[in-house]
Design a protein around this nucleic acid. Structure first.
Length: 162
DNA sequence: GCCAACGTTGGC
DNA sequence: GCCAACGTTGGC
């Protein structure tokens, strides 16, 4: 049987008050659509670069402490985010409606494993090898970021998932 | 809740 | 296409 390695690694931010890694663990098939991305750079990465099998660090922002809460994988590649067309959604986008279709896409991700303990932003800052992460660069607010294989291995270990 | 650092919008 | 005003993000 052919084994395919994940081709790419990503980090995706979420506010745990809105959707946490625990919520993902409790979801049917531990899978969710990642709705609500409303930034072009982030959208383009999902649309062009996210492939089935890619692995994702799920990061809790606006949390105490902020940090990586678990690992997931991409199980469905980009498709239109219908929330953009729904006036009742928090993620409604008037311009998508004007254009007749959603300008935004989402992917589906499935939980792989929760971190044994949250890998805090503070810990990430202090860990050699992670100083290049976009996350620790000043003012970097992108909600979706690429992660290098080396960074992935380090964070995975910090998660207690070596 | 503050506010710095961004991204987006829209007038010109 | 410039850029000021405005909105958002997200750590603290």
């Amino acid at each position: 049987m052919k084994v395919t390695n994940p081709s790419r690694f990503w980090l995706m931010k979420t506010e745990p008050e809105v959707f946490s890694f625990d919520d993902l663990m409790r979801a049917p098939r531990q899978t969710t659509c990642w709705e609500g991305v409303r930034n072009y750079q982030a959208r383009n990465m999902m649309r062009d670069d996210f492939k089935i099998g890619d692995e994702v660090l799920v990061y809790h922002s606006n949390a105490a402490p902020p940090g990586v809460a678990g690992i997931a994988r991409v199980v469905r590649e980009a498709y239109p985010d219908p929330a953009a067309m729904d006036p009742k959604s928090d993620y409604f986008d008037e311009k998508s409606v004007a254009g007749g279709q959603s300008r935004w896409v989402m992917v589906d991700i499935q939980a792989v494993a929760p971190a044994k303990k949250i890998v805090s932003l503070d810990e990430i800052r202090k860990t050699p090898g992670l100083e290049g992460m976009l996350l620790v660069k000043q003012g970097q607010r992108l909600s979706i970021q690429p992660v290098t294989p080396a960074e992935w291995q380090i964070i995975r270990r910090l998660c207690g998932l070596a």
